[in-house]
Computed example of a mutant assay.
Amino acid sequence: MNSDFLTGTELLLAYEDIRMTKSRYCRFIDTKDWEALKDVFAPDAVADFSTEGNPIPVLEGRDTIVNVFQELVDPAVTVHQVHGADIELVSATEANVLSPMEDYVTFPESNPNKSFHGYGYYHETFVKLDGRWVIQHTSLKRLRLDIL
């Protein structure tokens, strides 16, 4: 990793800001705070969760991403956890981030969606816009998905 463009303190602050953005992403989904969730994404963000068997297509734009999340998981009880992200700063305003994740999503019996418990990795690009780190591109690669 080449981070010669940041001082030690700037590097640590960038790491912490990126981790906090991802933490808020999880919390806002789990607490159904859809307006706040918009703030973790760049306006032109892309979300690609289009793995086999997943009903979510590639999503373009912060509003689209949040609206689809809301439509899909608002009726569910969700628990999202991310752990020990690997962060590679490629410039003072861009970072590649790999975060191990676990999610537990349970829908009411009346909902046609299946409840599940999953494990995998978020592969993401974060960018710094207006002094804040936000998600520019996110994709989820699952290692395991248990249908409940």
Rank of each mutant, 00 (worst) to 15 (best):
P57R: 11
L11M: 10
N111P: 07
A85H: 04
Q81W: 03
S139T: 06
D39Y: 11
D30Q: 04
D39Q: 14
P112D: 04
R19W: 02
K141N: 11
T31Q: 08
R62D: 01
E16L: 08
D103G: 09
G53C: 07
P43E: 03
F116S: 01
D86P: 00
V97G: 00
E124Q: 14
D44Q: 12
V90K: 04
T7L: 04
S99T: 15
T106D: 06
D30S: 07
M101R: 01
D17S: 12
E10N: 01
D103L: 08
T93V: 08
Y119T: 00
T7R: 07
I65S: 01
R62A: 07
A42V: 03
L140Y: 04
T51I: 14
G84Q: 08
I147W: 02
F126E: 13
N2D: 15
L72M: 09
F5D: 00
T31H: 05
T21N: 08
P57S: 07
D86H: 04
S91Y: 05
P75W: 03
P57C: 13
M101L: 07
V105M: 13
E10Y: 04
S110H: 12
Y15Q: 12
E60K: 15
V40L: 03
A92F: 02
I135K: 00
A36Q: 14
L6P: 09
A42M: 06
D44G: 06
A92W: 02
E109G: 15
I65F: 01
T106F: 11
K22T: 00
I18E: 00
K114M: 09
L140S: 08
L140D: 06
Y25P: 08
N113K: 04
L145I: 02
D4H: 12
F126W: 11
I56S: 06
S115M: 01
S99Y: 11
F107L: 12
V40E: 05
F5R: 00
L6V: 14
P57W: 09
L129Q: 12
S110T: 15
